[in-house]
Design a protein around this nucleic acid. Structure first.
Lengths: 109, 109
DNA sequence: TCAGCTATTTAGCGCTACTATGTACCAGTA
DNA sequence: TACTGGTACATAGTAGCGCTAAATAGCTGA
């Protein structure tokens, strides 16, 4: 991943994961695989797991341990009400930033 | 500024400043004022100056000291060829991220 | 038995924005 | 003259986040 992308993901990756979880519950390995599929070529697994720990500690998600028939048990995360609220706030922040950026791209100031 | 915004600015603020400079040359104080005008309510002055030092050291901008009649001399920055290239790379990275985010917002995955 | 996929965890690092503070030039004014 | 306030830049220290790297563990098939 380029350095620019790495820096840009700070703050947005969290929103991305929350947005994924707003669609449906998921576990770390799955999320990582999906992101890679979407073109986030080398998002480190460690990054996602650390992020999940963080949002769990902040109380944005609920966690359930579910046995897997292909390996060790999965930790399945689902967005709770607080998480949903936080996600909306994220979209507002994102929108603001995206608008400013689009203006800059077109207008050249 | 909210914590979300602070994190989200990492990586994008640099692009924002470069985009401003692609329109025309500017100095730190001016850029800070303009950003505040645009709604980036409490971007710290220190942040911009540190950022400008960084992009100068990376050779993305040229600098010229210009006397001011209202205070100490200004350090006027202008984007050079390397900076322009870097800015294009920034827009590519940004576009990729923005597309993914828009998809997530609509599709819900 | 061992390789390989699934699945999670964590210590340490680098980078960036923020906080806080200091320096310095100039104009207007009391 | 001294003081205030706007203009303008610089920088040391802090916090947060994504990455690197390495470890652990369950399961399956050769």
């Amino acid at each position: 991943m380029g350095k620019q992308m790495t820096e840009m993901l700070k703050g947005t990756l969290e929103g991305i994961v929350l947005a994924i979880l707003s669609g449906r519950s998921a576990y770390g390995y799955e999320i990582t695989a999906w992101l890679r599929d979407q073109g986030f070529s080398d998002i480190a697994e460690g990054t996602i797991y650390a992020l999940l720990v963080r949002i769990e500690q902040r109380g944005l998600v609920d966690v359930e341990k579910v046995p897997s028939d292909k390996g060790p048990p999965r930790k399945v995360y689902s967005l709770n009400d607080q998480g949903r609220e936080y996600l909306e706030e994220f979209w507002r922040t994102w929108s603001f930033l995206a608008e400013r950026l689009e203006q800059l791209r077109e207008g050249g100031r």
